[in-house]
Simulated assay, not measured.
Amino acid sequence: MSNEASPHNQHLTRDCLDEWLGNFSEFKYYFLRHCQIMAKAVGYYFDFDESALKVAHDNWRSRCELWESEWVMSDSSGLSHLKMMAILLYQLATVDWVNDIYEYDPSADGIIFNGSDSEKAEARLDLNAGRGTYLAFHFTIHVINWFESVRDDRKDIFVFRMTPELFHDLMVYLLSPRREEMAIFLALKCLYARD
């Protein structure tokens, strides 16, 4: 299935980040929908703290404004999707927006985990340990991958280069109190470097 047709991508457009940045309700709908499908696929359901999620969104918007006004060249066309998503990931990792997770039977919704039983067991452990940061990281990667796959200035076909080891290392860093916004951006920039 192409990226354009996937049900997980139905709200992804070239303008979606600007729309989400300007409208908390739109962002919340797509973000939570994506995260709940991910959680349900591994047998979990979560409830969330809307006020914490709103704080993360407000901080995302203000940090994007700061980056654009202070740290990006004046002749640029604004923040790239990579910068915007790195800032969002940092903000979501700094607030406890997931209140709790619960066992869930994914067959009730017809949701199927796309992987082996051992991969599902590992994903359950990772989600349980990383909670909101784990879900936010996957959401960020999902959105960046979509943008990278539809670029019209790419010379080669997009290939996602994340390894399990790198995923683990980045999760440890994102859960660390020493995480930094710029470092998250640079890590993602390296992951998505292209010719």
Rank of each mutant, 00 (worst) to 15 (best):
residue 127 L to D: 02
residue 100 D to V: 13
residue 51 S to F: 15
residue 121 A to E: 15
residue 112 I to K: 13
residue 36 Q to S: 12
residue 72 V to S: 07
residue 69 S to I: 09
residue 11 H to D: 11
residue 18 D to S: 09
residue 70 E to C: 12
residue 125 L to N: 14
residue 21 L to Y: 10
residue 28 K to S: 15
residue 39 A to W: 00
residue 90 Y to R: 00
residue 96 D to K: 10
residue 106 P to F: 10
residue 77 S to R: 05
residue 124 R to I: 05
residue 80 S to E: 11
residue 140 T to F: 11
residue 108 A to Y: 12
residue 87 I to A: 04
residue 119 E to T: 04
residue 45 Y to K: 09
residue 23 N to R: 06
residue 64 C to M: 13
residue 118 S to F: 11
residue 90 Y to L: 06
residue 136 A to T: 03
residue 49 D to F: 07
residue 103 E to K: 12
residue 70 E to W: 06
residue 140 T to V: 10
residue 68 E to I: 02
residue 61 R to Y: 12
residue 140 T to W: 02
residue 28 K to N: 14
residue 56 A to H: 02
residue 64 C to L: 13
residue 11 H to L: 09
residue 40 K to C: 10
residue 93 A to L: 03
residue 53 L to I: 05
residue 77 S to Q: 15
residue 74 S to M: 09
residue 88 L to V: 01
residue 46 F to T: 07
residue 17 L to D: 02
residue 107 S to Q: 09
residue 126 D to S: 12
residue 18 D to W: 05
residue 85 M to Y: 07
residue 75 D to N: 14
residue 43 G to P: 08
residue 55 V to H: 06
residue 22 G to N: 14
residue 119 E to H: 05
residue 41 A to Q: 12
residue 138 H to S: 03
residue 23 N to H: 11
residue 43 G to M: 01
residue 76 S to L: 07
residue 102 Y to E: 08
residue 23 N to P: 01
residue 67 W to K: 08
residue 19 E to C: 11
residue 32 L to D: 02
residue 90 Y to I: 07
residue 73 M to H: 11
residue 109 D to M: 10
residue 55 V to P: 00
residue 93 A to S: 15
residue 60 W to V: 00
residue 67 W to Y: 14
residue 121 A to T: 15
residue 89 L to Q: 07
residue 107 S to I: 12
residue 62 S to A: 13
residue 19 E to A: 10
residue 29 Y to P: 09
residue 142 H to S: 04
residue 122 E to D: 15
residue 117 D to C: 09
residue 114 N to W: 07
residue 10 Q to F: 01
residue 25 S to Y: 07
residue 84 M to Y: 03
residue 45 Y to D: 04
residue 16 C to S: 05
residue 89 L to K: 04
residue 85 M to E: 01
residue 65 E to G: 07
residue 126 D to I: 11
residue 43 G to T: 00
residue 34 H to T: 13
residue 91 Q to M: 11
residue 118 S to N: 12
residue 106 P to L: 01
residue 66 L to N: 13
residue 98 V to D: 08
residue 142 H to C: 05
residue 60 W to G: 04
residue 121 A to Y: 10
residue 107 S to F: 10
residue 121 A to Q: 11
residue 67 W to R: 05
residue 123 A to T: 13
residue 37 I to V: 15
residue 54 K to L: 15
residue 57 H to T: 04
residue 21 L to E: 08
residue 11 H to N: 13
residue 87 I to Q: 06
residue 67 W to P: 01
residue 10 Q to E: 12
residue 130 G to D: 05
residue 39 A to K: 00
residue 128 N to P: 02
residue 71 W to R: 11
residue 13 T to E: 05
residue 42 V to S: 08
residue 132 G to D: 00
residue 25 S to F: 09
residue 97 W to T: 08
residue 55 V to D: 11
residue 47 D to R: 12
residue 72 V to M: 01
residue 45 Y to P: 06
residue 20 W to T: 03
residue 82 L to G: 03
residue 120 K to P: 13
residue 128 N to A: 14
residue 116 S to L: 06
residue 111 I to R: 02
residue 78 G to I: 01
residue 116 S to Q: 05
residue 96 D to Q: 14
residue 35 C to F: 09
residue 15 D to P: 04
residue 49 D to W: 06
residue 52 A to T: 09
residue 34 H to M: 04
residue 139 F to D: 06
